[in-house]
Simulated assay, not measured.
Amino acid sequence: MSEQTDDERPSYEAAREELVEVVRQLEAGGTSLEESLALWERGEKLATICQEWLDGARERLDAVIEADDGAED
């Protein structure tokens, strides 16, 4: 994520937990349009953060698998 450093970016677990809470609030309703839009935007940010964590984990796993495959040759 280019906007935040790793120190500022929440962990995958924290982002996912907050995203679950955002979805719960949106599904419950009872918020103004402005509040709903702010929740939606926060949810989009959190979903992006989670996806970046997952993509990074996949890249690391792929690199390890590739290194192991190269070591076996």
Rank of each mutant, 00 (worst) to 15 (best):
E18M: 05
E18W: 00
C50G: 00
T48S: 13
E41I: 04
K45Y: 08
G43R: 01
M1C: 14
R42F: 00
D73E: 15
D6Q: 14
T5W: 06
E59K: 15
L46G: 00
L33N: 08
Y12W: 08
S32H: 08
L61C: 08
R9S: 06
A28H: 04
R60S: 02
L26F: 03
D55R: 12
S32I: 03
A47N: 09
D7S: 14
E41S: 08
A28W: 05
L54C: 07
R60H: 08
E21G: 05
E72K: 11
V64R: 09
L37M: 15
R42L: 09
I49R: 03
L33G: 06
A63S: 15
K45L: 09
W53L: 04
P10M: 02
G29I: 01
A38N: 09
R24Q: 12
A47W: 01
S11V: 08
E44K: 11
W53N: 05
E59W: 04
L46S: 02
E34M: 14
E35G: 12
Q25D: 09
T31P: 02
R24I: 00
K45S: 10
L33C: 04
K45H: 07
R16F: 10
D55Q: 13
Y12K: 09
D68A: 11
T5Q: 11
E52D: 14
S32C: 07
V23D: 06
I49E: 02
G56H: 03
Y12N: 05
E34P: 03
L61P: 01
R60Y: 05
E72M: 13
R16T: 05
S32E: 04
I65D: 15
L37P: 02
L37R: 15
Y12A: 08
T5L: 07
A63D: 10
A71D: 06
E17T: 11
R58H: 12
E13S: 14
M1F: 13
I49Q: 07
L37T: 12
Q51M: 13
S2N: 13
R42I: 02
S32R: 10
V64D: 12
A63W: 05
I65C: 10
Q51A: 15
S2A: 14
R9H: 06
D55V: 07
S2K: 14
V20Q: 11
E21S: 14
E13Y: 10
D68Y: 03
S36P: 00
E72Y: 06
S11T: 15
P10H: 06
L33Q: 15
D7A: 15
R58I: 05
E21V: 09
E13D: 15
W40S: 09
C50H: 03
A63L: 07
A14P: 03
G29P: 06
T5F: 07
E44H: 07
D62P: 00
L61M: 14
I49K: 04
R9F: 05
L19R: 11
W40M: 09
R42C: 00
R9L: 11
E41H: 07
S36W: 00
K45I: 04
D6F: 10
A38L: 10
A63Y: 01
L54Y: 05
L37W: 13
V20S: 09
T31C: 11
L46P: 00
I65M: 10
